[in-house]
Design a protein around this nucleic acid. Structure first.
Length: 727
DNA sequence: GTAGGGTTAG
């Protein structure tokens, strides 16, 4: 093929060579390939001399090859000069060309200047808005189109449906669905696939299924739409059932379908099936598909195999943003918060721009770590970034501050957001609950309703939790019963809160009767709440009943065995304590090792029970002994029942004072200036003995000590705890 | 000129 390196200079009619500094576009006309520069429009003079060239196809090629708005400007002016401004084909091409260059205003100007748009022209402008994520405008244009009497066609609806999907407007979707049927596209597979995806994304997957079932001919897109629909709505098992139906129908999955199926396996933690699908992917030869690598990363990370996940991440030479997000959130959500933060910092130092998903995951990881210093760093980072007004990120910040011990900072983030949704309100309510500020939570709920924000199921989990942590039995009971006013079906979480609330307050009989009347099968959390109430009130028979339920529902959770053993120990039933120990050994379970983390000068230091490994161990134990002596002088009597095993008295006492939280306190005291607040995070729930001891210590040393246990926060000050001994 | 996916707040 001949290459003609030329274009016409705008100033002369002579040809000139294209200089290398000009980036040319290609143009193929009648088998001759031309390179045209920005002044390529002047080729027209040449072409016009050659009458055999059709001007429509010439301009069409020119538009297709335009890489800059200035090209379109030139072409448009030529069309005007040549009287071609009413040529629907060319003007539609021009609109499409503009939208491809994200010149949506320009596209609209062209459209408005066109007197009698046909369906092609309408589709072009509707497509422009949809492709540029301007979904309200997409719908507006569609409405206007119908008003002018132009009938939409099979190309119109996919764009309109895409807009409905993004707007999550169920009412609008139904309306459009009606119009699709009226205009006769009830069996157009493209349009129907759009409907399946739309209903699924609106959370109406059963409606999506009806549309899917009505499809006469199903393409891989139809199957992917319904499978991902189930997966996105938390119905992974149904998604996987559809996948096997798809295989029975002999439809071969492509990589997009595989991504959806992997997601379903990820959601149900099915590593075995996920692995076998991974094998299939390798067999088909799709293992290097970047988007499948991302899904595999998410799968292995979710199933705890972060090293494998990391190997996929490392395999990608230049991971895209979603891969970074998958890896960071994989770390953050699966017990590797430190790695998550590390990777996030790595990303920033490499000048890769995070998005709101990345930042949210990093904030989530910081919440897990519990370091207030890191929390403040994250907050600063967000304030200096573009995410300062992002509701997702700010909600995560509120949750993070609450979990890092500063409910005041959480409130500051909350207050600086003017646009709050129910999730943000719920996060703040949850935060108050975590810190035992029950009334603040309830008052905030009242303010929320005044602001016309409707509560959802999570709001109530937060509220009931707050009531629990503050012993607000009546208020909690009332709130629970008000759920039906908002048509919210209580879940196991809500029921367990109520059981907790009644049980702790000593209404064990009522708690039991409440469980019996539950309309759903009581889950682990419900029986767990009953058992822990039985432990507090030393009710052995009922506790044994609850424990039996727990052992059958959740046999490998060590916590239940420890709870029951503690219940026996508190009732001095040592032979039964021993029996539990045997049971645990038989089932291969070990008591979770308690550890506490304290942050000194931004550095986290962990201690486990009786930890002697620290270089300052001698000083720490010296301090522990001083504290112990002073506690005794104040008349402190250790609660020996907090020990799981049947030990003799002295041993028990020693064991207690070497609990990890006590060691962390001692280390904190000798490592910080007088008056400094100590912040400690414990992996298990606070033990009764340490709780009483730390209360007194806070008074003795005149320090505020904040301890986050597995359930909530304890603010120790002046000999008292914010939980008022209610936890 | 049409449609499907992956990371995703409490």
């Amino acid at each position: 093929m001949a290459w003609n390196f030329f274009s016409l200079s705008p100033l002369t009619t002579k040809y000139r060579k294209v200089t290398t500094s000009e980036i040319p576009t290609c143009l193929v006309l009648k088998g001759v390939k031309y390179i045209c520069s920005s002044s390529a429009i002047y080729l027209e003079h040449f072409i016009n001399r050659d009458r055999s060239v059709n001007s429509d196809s010439f301009y069409a090629s020119l538009i297709d090859n335009s890489t800059h708005k200035r090209h379109l400007d030139q072409i448009h002016s030529r069309l005007l000069v040549s009287g071609l401004q009413h040529n629907g084909f060319l003007m539609t091409k021009l609109v499409n060309g503009s939208s491809n260059l994200a010149q949506i205003c320009y596209a609209r100007k062209l459209f408005d200047g066109f007197c009698f748009p046909d369906v092609f022209m309408w589709n072009a402008i509707i497509r422009s808005y949809s492709r540029n994520n301007m979904f309200r405008d997409t719908i507006d244009m569609y409405r206007w189109m119908r008003l002018t009497g132009v009938h939409p066609d099979g190309f119109t609806f996919p764009y309109v449906l895409k807009a409905c999907t993004e707007l999550l407007d169920f009412g609008l979707s139904c309306l459009i669905h009606g119009q699709i049927i009226r205009y006769g596209f009830g069996s157009d597979v493209f349009v129907q696939n759009g409907l399946v995806a739309l209903y699924a994304k609106c959370g109406r997957v059963s409606v999506a299924k009806v549309v899917f079932d009505g499809l006469y001919h199903r393409t891989i897109v139809s199957w992917t739409s319904i499978i991902s629909g189930y997966a996105q709505n938390g119905e992974s098992m149904e998604a996987l059932r559809m996948f096997s139906q798809m295989r029975n129908a002999d439809v071969k999955p492509d990589w997009i379908a595989l991504v959806s199926i992997l997601r379903a396996y990820t959601d149900v933690d099915d590593l075995e099936q996920g692995r076998s699908l991974h094998g299939c992917i390798i067999k088909i030869g799709l293992e290097d598909e970047p988007d499948l690598l991302i899904s595999l990363t998410a799968l292995y990370a979710k199933c705890g195999m972060v090293m494998v996940a990391r190997s996929f991440f490392d395999q990608m030479k230049t991971p895209n943003l979603i891969m970074w997000n998958a890896m960071i959130s994989g770390y953050a959500k699966n017990g590797h918060a430190e790695e998550a933060v590390h990777l996030f910092r790595d990303m920033i130092s490499r000048n890769i721009k995070p998005d709101s998903v990345t930042v949210r995951s990093a904030v989530l990881a910081s919440a897990h770590l519990g370091s207030l210093k890191l929390a403040q760093w994250m907050d600063d980072y967000v304030s200096n970034s573009n995410f300062g007004s992002c509701i997702f990120v700010n909600t995560a910040l509120i949750d993070m501050y609450a979990k890092c011990g500063s409910v005041e900072s959480a409130r500051m983030v909350f207050d600086r957001n003017s646009d709050k949704d129910v999730v943000m309100w719920s996060a703040m309510i949850m935060g108050y609950g975590l810190h035992g500020q029950g009334w603040e939570a309830i008052n905030l709920y009242t303010t929320m309703k005044q602001a016309s924000v409707f509560p959802n199921d999570v709001t109530f989990v937060g509220l009931l939790n707050a009531c629990n942590h503050s012993g607000l039995v009546k208020e909690g009971w009332k709130l629970f019963h008000s759920m039906k006013d908002f048509e919210i079906e209580p879940r196991n979480e809500h029921y367990s809160c109520v059981v907790d609330l009644l049980g702790r307050a000593g209404y064990l009989g009522q708690a039991c009767a409440f469980i019996m009347k539950m309309p759903i099968e009581p889950g682990v959390s419900v029986w767990g709440a009953l058992l822990s109430a039985c432990k507090i009130h030393r009710c052995v028979t009922l506790g044994e009943y609850a424990a039996k339920k727990l052992f059958s529902l959740d046999p490998y959770n060590t916590g239940h065995y420890v709870q029951l053993s503690n219940l026996y120990a508190s009732s001095r039933l040592w032979d039964r304590v021993a029996h539990i120990r045997v049971l645990m050994r038989e089932r291969g379970l070990n008591k979770d090792l308690g550890y506490s983390v304290i942050e000194i000068n931004g550095k986290l230091q962990a201690f486990h029970v009786g930890d002697m490994s620290h270089p300052m161990a001698n000083e720490i134990f010296n301090e522990l002994q001083i504290l112990e002596r002073r506690l005794k002088e104040m008349g402190f009597v250790p609660h020996t029942e907090s020990v799981l095993h049947d030990l003799n008295y002295e041993e028990k006492e020693e064991n207690l004072s070497f609990h990890s939280e006590r060691i962390a306190v001692a280390y904190g005291l000798i490592s910080t200036a007088p008056g400094t607040t100590l912040r400690i995070t414990k992996n298990l729930r606070a033990c009764v003995n340490c709780h009483s001891a730390i209360k007194l210590i806070s008074k003795l040393v005149e320090r505020e000590i904040i301890v986050r246990d597995a359930n909530r926060f304890h603010h120790f000050k002046d000999g008292l705890c914010s939980c008022r001994d209610y936890w």
